[in-house]
Amino acid sequence: MDKTPDILCIGAVLWDVIGRSASTMRLGSDVPGHITRVPGGVALNIAMTLTRFGLRPALLAALGRDAAGDALLAEAEAMGMEVAHAYRSEDLPTDNYMAIEGANGLIAAIADAHSLERAGDKILRPLGDGRLGSPEAPWAGPVALDGNLTEDLLREIAVSPLFARADIRVAPASPGKALRLQALLGHPTATLYVNLEEAGLLCQTTFASSAEAADALLARGAARALVTDGGASATEAAPGRSLTKTPPAVLVTRVTGAGDIFMAAHIAAELAGAAPEAALERALQAAAAYVSGDTPQ
């Protein structure tokens, strides 16, 4: 049986600790709710969604040789992911993410991805040592890149021969890390998946719509851009094409990870041969199902 993965997911693989309340919250709120710990991180969120579409992703990430890392990779493997290529550190702990969500959306979040940042290019070793590719025969399939990677590593990836033939899909992780993606704006195969705020940060302005933002990203050198604007609209733009759709109207019960679901569903649709309009529609449907609570965490 061919053990080559369908896609590489490179970036944060960690534990999500999420506190959710049905109450509207503000600074200093102390309300009842539920706290969960589930597998998360941008790269893992994308990979989990890809497995639901029947794909086999491989994780390139940094985890500690600790109980948290063992448990996380065991869950990932049970879901159908290839985990053998993950970098395991003897002296760095497994990363964590913590968020608080209320009825009025995300209140605050902290991403502790310091182990991923400190591991640096060690997570890319399988792409150069023959396991997944080499400088002479680089990986030629799709790659989901996570903006939790350092700016230096993203710059390295942008010019690396190891990614010369890859179909690169990029997620910023958060508005606070969106500027890290500037290194990939000129890459000929990089598709950016950002929200309206992140697009504005990359273009150093504000936008009134996803269509305006997507066109501006192309003007700044993006090979292709997908921009979401919550429940208002989403746009996919490439040279000579701009397509905008309105997401399904749903009751929002959670928001953390919705962008990752959108990106993964769009990638899966395209890998299955969907045309641009159909791929965008499937991504919006998947994200709507997720934020409404109709699909698993």
Rank of each mutant, 00 (worst) to 15 (best):
V17E: 14
A288H: 08
G259W: 06
A140S: 11
A22K: 11
A61G: 09
R220G: 02
E136R: 12
A171C: 11
E281T: 14
W139Q: 00
S21L: 11
L184Y: 06
A137C: 05
I168T: 03
G54Y: 13
A108H: 13
I35L: 14
G64T: 12
R165P: 00
A86C: 15
E277D: 15
E270D: 08
A190L: 00
C9W: 04
D66Y: 10
R125E: 15
A22M: 01
D95E: 10
A279D: 05
D152W: 08
H34V: 12
V13A: 15
S233N: 07
F53C: 10
G176N: 12
T49S: 10
D95V: 08
R20L: 07
A249G: 08
I107Y: 07
A119F: 04
T189A: 14
G259D: 12
F163G: 02
A225Y: 00
L271S: 05
Y290S: 06
L184H: 05
G130N: 10
D167K: 12
S134V: 02
L124C: 08
Y193C: 05
L179P: 01
L72Q: 05
T205S: 14
A119R: 07
A71N: 13
E198R: 04
G54H: 08
S29C: 06
R26C: 13
T206S: 05
R20I: 04
E77Y: 03
G128A: 12
D91I: 14
V159Q: 12
A208M: 11
E277K: 13
A287L: 07
D95Y: 09
D215L: 14
P172K: 06
G28A: 15
N104I: 07
A216G: 02
P93T: 13
T36P: 00
G259S: 14
L217S: 02
T205E: 14
A61T: 15
E151W: 00
A274L: 06
Y87K: 05
I46A: 08
L192W: 02
E101D: 11
T94V: 06
P93K: 13
V194Q: 04
T24R: 14
V31E: 15
L132P: 03
V38C: 03
Q285S: 13
T4N: 12
T24V: 15
A108L: 15
L280R: 09
A279N: 07
P188G: 09
D146R: 05
I35R: 07
V250H: 09
A268W: 05
L127K: 01
E277G: 14
T189K: 10
G130A: 13
A258Y: 02
G80Q: 09
I157K: 02
Y97E: 06
I267M: 15
V159E: 13
T94K: 03
T150G: 08
L44S: 02
R118L: 14
T49P: 01
A249C: 10
E197P: 00
D121T: 12
A109D: 07
L196V: 00
L284Y: 07
R131N: 07
Q285K: 12
S23F: 13
I107Q: 15
T189G: 03
A190G: 03
H34L: 08
P5V: 09
L162D: 01
A289F: 00
A109E: 03
M79P: 00
A225G: 08
S134Y: 01
A268L: 09
A269Q: 09
G230L: 09
A99G: 11
A278D: 15
V143L: 02
